Simulated scan of single mutants.
Amino acid sequence: RAGLPALSATQAQQWLDDESRTTYLLDIRTAEEFAQGSIDGARHAPGGQLVQATDQYIGVRGSRVIVFDDDGVRAPVVASWLYQLGYESAVLAHGVNAAIKASAPPRTLPAHALPVLDANLLRALYAQAPDALRIDLRESAEYARGHAEGAAWSIRPRLPATLDRLGAAPDQPVILIASEPHVANLAGQDLLAAGYRHVYRLAEGYRTWQAAGLPEAAEPVGLPPEARIDYLFFVHDRHEGNKDAARAYLAWETGLIAQCAPDELGHFRILASAGQAADQSKAA
Rank of each mutant, 00 (worst) to 15 (best):
T22K: 13
W252M: 07
L186V: 10
R43N: 08
A274T: 05
L232C: 13
A35W: 04
Y249S: 04
R1H: 15
L114A: 07
A283T: 13
R138N: 00
G213A: 08
D131H: 08
N242A: 03
P181N: 09
A45V: 11
G213P: 07
S140K: 04
A129R: 10
A2C: 15
A99E: 14
Q49L: 15
D118W: 09
D279W: 04
R138M: 00
A152S: 14
A283I: 10
L7G: 09
G241Q: 11
A178C: 04
H94L: 14
A75H: 08
D17F: 00
L256A: 12
H44F: 00
A93W: 03
P106C: 06
R197M: 01
Q84C: 00
A277K: 09
H112F: 10
T30V: 07
Q280G: 13
R228G: 08
A278R: 09
A184I: 01
V174N: 05
A284F: 13
L166Q: 05
A90V: 01
G62W: 08
V235E: 11
L109T: 14
L125W: 08
A6F: 15
R138Q: 04
D131Q: 11
K101H: 12
W153R: 11
A161W: 09
S8W: 00
L214D: 02
S179H: 07
D164A: 14
R1M: 14
H239D: 10
R201H: 02
V116K: 15
